[in-house]
């Protein structure tokens, strides 16, 4: 998991951005996580934008925000539900034990 945050040079409303890439180790897991997380839209689309994509079993997420605090809040909330989704697959997916 790697996060990179940068300030862009051009004067831009979406000044703050950050990227997240997670290796989910299979195309199937990646598509499940993507489908589960894409349903919930950002609560303040005029302040934060989130774009997701999957390839080679990896989930890539790009965040853009108008202020650092919105970027931080959105990123943090997203990581919480991302971990929930991956844990659900690990614990209740194929080969689960009760």
């Amino acid at each position: 998991m790697a996060a990179v945050s940068e300030l862009s040079d051009t004067p831009n409303q979406w000044e703050f951005s950050c990227d997240l890439e997670v290796d989910l180790e299979s195309e199937e897991n990646a598509s499940i996580v993507y489908a589960a997380l894409v349903v919930d839209k950002e609560l303040q689309p005029d302040k934060v934008k989130r774009q997701m994509s999957i390839s080679d079993g990896k989930l890539s997420v790009h965040f853009e925000a108008v202020e650092a605090r919105f970027l931080r809040a959105s990123f943090s909330a997203f990581v919480d539900v991302l971990i929930l989704a991956t844990k659900t697959i690990e614990e209740l997916g194929p080969g689960m034990e009760l």
């Binding site: 598509s31 996580v33 589960a36 997380l37 539900v81 989704a85 697959i89």
Partner: peptide, 11 residues
Amino acid sequence: AIVVRVLSLLW
């Protein structure tokens, strides 16, 4: 909501 979506796809 998240757990249900993941389980729906898994199961």
